[in-house]
């Protein structure tokens, strides 16, 4: 295969992934800024400047690095690298299953970093993060299966060009996925392992022992994460490669994010037992019912393909 043929076949994918790697921090940071503004308004306050998350991260790079050990920083870098890779995989139109595995791996590096710090608060934070993973992973996997059942492919590139929006055939899975998004965005009631505001029994939980540039890297990693999660939500609404459907998807994803902020401000933090139970019940009901109905109605995969 010569270079031209390669570019013709993969050019768009590479471009899209490259754009993601470059622009995601911008989008994620802005999203965080908007989030803090809206949260402040909901609490009767004015809130910080829109660009505050960028100031924070830049500030963290200005601080002298104090780390408990070198291993900790190594894991943080791996966490960031794998999150970037996960997102790039998604934006390059890659395999959803691979995407999920890479995503999980990234999360595991984060947990390892917290364990490496060897302080009670970060250790308990790490334990809770593991519990949270147990809570949301089943739902994420079911969602991938749902996409396959709906469109006949695990490839994001194929799902984009399906005959109709996936949400038409897997609406319950969409709702279930939104439910576990609360875990991933670390919003109340499921901000058990760490919370955006530090008033928690385990201080900052999993991020307690990080400071300066490593904390900044974690923050940037979360921006990447937020960006592809938003894109994942949008994927439910995209069909036939239609640019308008992409816009629709993005719009819905932002509405979902707004609802997450609203939920964050109207719930207390729950304990881990309820978090896991509720996430599994939601996954069990929405996931299995949706897949069952889909199987019965269409009698096989690829209804929209």
């Amino acid at each position: 295969m010569n270079v031209n043929a390669f570019l013709a076949a993969y050019g768009v994918r590479i471009l899209s992934a490259a754009l993601y790697v470059l622009l995601a921090p911008l989008f994620g940071g802005l999203l965080a800024g908007v989030d803090r503004r809206i949260t402040a308004r909901m609490q009767g306050r004015k809130g910080p400047p829109l660009l505050q998350p960028f100031y924070d991260v830049a500030k963290l790079f200005e601080k002298r690095r104090v780390s408990v050990n070198k291993l900790q920083n190594f894991f943080v870098v791996l966490f960031l690298v794998f999150l970037v890779f996960t997102g790039a995989l998604f934006f390059a139109g890659g395999d959803l299953l691979l995407f999920i595995f890479a995503f999980t791996l990234a999360a595991l590096f984060f947990i390892s970093a917290a364990y490496a710090a060897n302080s009670p608060y970060s250790a308990i934070g790490a334990e809770r993060e593991l519990l949270q993973m147990m809570a949301y992973e089943p739902m994420v996997l079911l969602t991938a299966v749902g996409f396959y059942m709906a469109t006949g492919s695990f490839q994001v590139g194929d799902i984009l060009f399906a005959k109709g929006p996936a949400v038409a055939s897997i609406p319950a899975l969409f709702l279930g996925f939104c439910y576990v998004l609360t875990f991933k965005f670390r919003k109340s009631p499921f901000d058990l392992s760490t919370s955006h505001h530090g008033h928690q029994e385990i201080v900052k939980g999993i991020t307690t022992e990080f400071s300066g540039s490593s904390l900044a890297l974690i923050e940037i990693a979360h921006w990447y994460e937020a960006t592809f999660l938003i894109a994942f939500v949008a994927l439910f609404f995209v069909w036939g490669g239609n640019p308008w459907s992409v816009l629709l998807g993005l719009g819905v994803a932002l509405v979902v994010y707004f609802l997450e902020i609203l939920i964050d401000n109207t719930f207390a933090r729950v304990k881990w037992q309820l978090a896991i139970q509720s996430a599994w019940i939601v996954a069990g009901t929405t996931g299995f019912l949706n897949l069952l109905v889909l199987t019965l109605v269409q009698g096989g995969a690829g209804w929209l393909s």
Binding site: T39, M42, Q43, G44, R45, S188, P189, D191, S195, H197, H199, Q200, N265, T266, F267, A268, R269
Partner: peptide, 12 residues
């Protein structure tokens, strides 16, 4: 409210 992670209730 702050103790059980309900920040907006604390603020109000």
């Amino acid at each position: 409210a702050d103790a059980f992670g309900f920040e907006s209730l604390f603020m109000h």
